[in-house]
Write a protein that binds this DNA or RNA. Structure first.
Length: 374
RNA sequence: GGAUGGGUUCCCGAGUGGCCAAAGGGAGCAGACUGUAAAUCUGCCGUCGCAGACUUCGAUGGUUCGAAUCCAUCCCCAUCCA
């Protein structure tokens, strides 16, 4: 445990947003941080070297997916997830909790745990808080997430409360089952879109004293103002000296708005998913690079970007790659989108350092077209 | 020159008297995507429009209430024979 620490190093005088350092045995993470998602032990289309080049300090992977394939024992045999995927920086593993939510229809939740049917071959699997911890121990990620119950939007109060209380019970079980000193565990706040539940959840988890806290159950289809409202509701009840991780967010605007409301960590598949589908982040907003209007556009994807893609290739070329179904198109777009978010967070950190995050936010939105957002 | 098989909407390709503006692919165009069941999915795809109307199935002419589908002639294409 002593190998890990989190320290808030600076608070923005203009906004109260935090700058921090999360130390792990695999390196330091400078918060606020965006974490690329590598569900199946790979950030899709990206090599670890490329991730390092664009400034990624930590990536995510997934308990459920790696449990099904290739199996945590194989990864243990390989020397752990870091060695297996040749990524020597920090890794965070999600617990499989999100799959409890997203795989609705091929899973059944009970107090003991969740029965899944594999989306790969239909085979039956069981994941409980203890099983999730065991898998995550075998994987060896620096940061492990508690196994939680995520709810949809909308969701009624009774259902949200039941899911929240079960999440709390499961959080205790995860904590009780977690013994490995080379890994830390985050609890996850739930409570859907009810302020009373969100506050109750934040307090309950705070009292369990986790190393850090995920904020789950947001960005599941609700309007953004509702998500922001929930963040503002929760934040006063979160431990001030612990990292706060808004799970599954986000888009460029959500990252900025999240930091303003006290979030330290984010992860999101959006950047890499839309990249593979031919859409890119730019300082002006979303660019669907597949569109015909870019066929003769020989300028860079984003004239403010310093990534390999923007330094070397034109919109017309990237469009051509997508139209031709060439895998390099997905790679170049992924490099760019991830670099865009990582650079955005570098700028956010710099703005906090200079006590001008609100100015930065306003400058960003003065150019960024929200009608071309997500 | 002869034989055979063909010519269908951007391409390939089904359709062989009405249920056909015409299956299915592809291409094209657009949209979606937020702890990844996603290099995926959805919509549009003859023209104008609300209904509906109009123009299409190599060309021309014909048979029929009605033709992409039947007949005649012509023009092309493929393969084989000379």
């Amino acid at each position: 445990m002593t190998k890990f620490s989190f320290e808030v190093t600076k608070t923005c005088a203009q906004t109260g947003a935090r700058l921090g350092v999360l130390k792990t045995p695999h390196g330091d993470i400078h918060t606020p941080v965006y974490m690329p998602v590598g569900t199946a032990a790979t950030v899709k289309a990206m090599t670890p070297r490329e991730l390092t080049e664009i400034g990624a300090e930590i990536i995510l992977s997934n308990t459920y997916h790696l449990h099904l394939r290739p199996g945590e024992e194989l990864i243990r045999e390989a020397g752990g997830l870091h060695r297996f995927m040749a990524w020597d920086k920090p890794i965070l593993t999600d617990s499989g909790g999100f799959q409890v939510f997203s795989l609705e229809g091929i899973r059944k939740i009970k107090e003991e745990g969740v029965k899944f049917q594999s989306h790969l071959d239909g085979s039956r699997h069981f994941i409980s808080p203890e099983v999730s911890m065991d898998i995550q121990h075998a994987l060896g990620a620096d940061i492990m997430m508690a196994f939680d119950v995520c709810t949809a939007y909308p969701c009624d109060h009774a259902e949200a409360e039941a899911a929240m209380l079960r999440t709390h019970r499961w959080a205790e079980r995860c904590q009780a089952h977690h013994t490995d000193g080379d890994q830390v565990l985050f609890g996850i706040v739930q409570g859907a879109f009810f302020k009373d539940l969100r506050i109750e959840s934040a307090k309950a988890l705070r009292d369990m004293n986790f190393f850090g806290y995920g904020i789950g159950g947001l960005s599941v289809g609700e309007p953004k103002p509702i998500m922001y409202d929930m963040l503002e509701t929760i934040m006063p009840h979160m431990a001030a000296d612990k990292p706060r991780y808004l799970m599954g967010v986000g888009s460029p605007d959500c990252l900025i708005e999240g930091v303003l409301r006290g979030v330290d960590m984010f992860d999101c598949v959006l950047a890499t998913r839309i990249a593979r589908n031919g859409t890119c982040f730019t300082a002006d907003g979303r660019v669907v690079i597949k569109n015909a209007k870019y066929a003769h556009d020989f300028g860079p994807l984003d004239d403010t970007c310093d990534c390999y893609t923007c330094r070397n290739f034109s919109r017309a070329y990237i469009r051509h790659l997508f139209k031709a179904g060439e895998i390099t198109g997905a790679r170049l777009a992924s490099i760019h989108n991830l670099r865009f978010l990582l650079r955005l967070m570098e700028n956010v950190r710099q703005a906090i350092r200079e006590d001008r995050l609100m100015d930065f936010r306003n400058e960003f939105f003065s150019r960024y077209d929200m009608t071309k957002n997500f």
